[in-house]
Design a protein around this nucleic acid. Structure first.
Lengths: 203, 203
DNA sequence: CTACCTATATACCGACCGGTATGAAATGTT
DNA sequence: AACATTTCATACCGGTCGGTATATAGGTAG
């Protein structure tokens, strides 16, 4: 990978920090979407010129994938933590509250980059679409397995299908992202979460 | 409005049907989004040339608004019908099932044009964003009022807030649109709907 | 028929798109 | 000092974007 710092630095040293630049790029993609983010806007936010960007990150598509990686690692870390909750209900609570703070929080753009990409990249070239879809399916499968475990542990009634319950929860989470992007405030989403958790079956 | 047929037809008659053309434009917007739909693609799908489009519909933004009007009138007619159900649960059932057939149905593009526009037009000029937001809020308010009525009629427990319940339901509906656009099939959404309706409070 | 009006088709506009060629500047190596 | 290597800054590439000027074709009104 070209953007990783080689052990022996030959040639003119790079004048910017790739991680900082990638963080800036992530923010642009986050609020403009993949197509909506222009190279001009990206380079300006990253504080570098286009040739530097292409030399370090490849092209727009590769930059987006790296930004999405960073996004999942930093902003979606709460998902992994949520799966470690003691009960199925605890998992749902942590996911829903994490979604509020992450997608409706302080200085970051509202809404989920993954959801946004799912919606906008329906017709994009398959490379980037598959990249987004894989991540989504992976976390959903992890959630299903967690609820299957919860069912064996008595967290969920025998009547509920763990797969359907997991998909219902992700549906709510994705809907919350839409609402956040549409301008809903954290308080409004809090009401949705509380209502949904009241309806939640089991412990 | 220029595209309405005047009673006395002077000048060369138009060679296309504006409603048919608008239907074709709606389909393009539906699967490409507002920004993703190019004028070239639109004119080709509509079977007319660019000057004809501009003369009849104004510009891209005006065309999109007219298409969104048509969309709500034709494809979202089930929403108005759903509000006429006898009970709050009946309303939810009709909305959720209508969402499946509409957003995951046969020949039409998957997903909801309104949700898609909400997500993609976050940064668009305010004119089109407000246009989308107004529609969304209007239907949400109607749903809230319907659930408030349902609560007085005993459809809902005293413990639930009709506003929060309505917003929770719209969250699920919007999430279903995301899932449909992401490739989920009707059967998968059916599982979500069934699970959610099982959790539904009251009749 | 002539005058007038409107829709059509073609070609074009400046602006922006993602991406790159080019040459100078800055380092390590010899 | 001379060279190899890498980054930087500038200017530029063909293509597409939304939108339009222009001229012609097809109608009604008189």
């Amino acid at each position: 990978m070209k953007c990783s710092a080689p052990t022996t630095t030959r040639g003119r040293p790079r004048e910017f920090d790739p991680e900082e630049a990638l963080t800036a790029a992530l923010r642009v993609f986050w609020q403009r979407g993949y197509e909506g983010a222009s190279m001009a806007e990206l380079t300006e936010a990253m504080g570098i010129t286009k040739p530097s960007l292409y030399a370090c990150f490849g092209n727009k598509e590769a930059l987006f994938k790296k930004a999405l990686d960073l996004y999942e690692r930093d902003k979606l870390a709460y998902v992994g933590k949520a799966l470690e909750a003691a009960t199925a209900r605890g998992v749902a609570e942590r996911l829903l509250e994490g979604a509020i703070t992450t997608h409706c929080g302080g200085s970051d753009p509202h809404g989920c980059l993954g959801v946004m990409s799912t919606v906008t990249c329906t017709m994009e070239d398959p490379s980037i679409r598959n990249f987004v879809t894989e991540r989504r399916i992976a976390t959903e499968e992890a959630l299903i397995e967690r609820f299957e475990r919860g069912k064996t542990e008595g967290d969920l009634p025998d009547t509920v299908d763990p797969r359907c319950l997991a998909q219902c929860l992700t549906t709510v989470l994705q809907g919350m992202s839409v609402k956040a992007q549409g301008g809903s405030c954290a308080q409004e989403l809090k009401g949705v979460v509380d209502t949904y958790l009241t309806m939640w079956p089991g412990r």
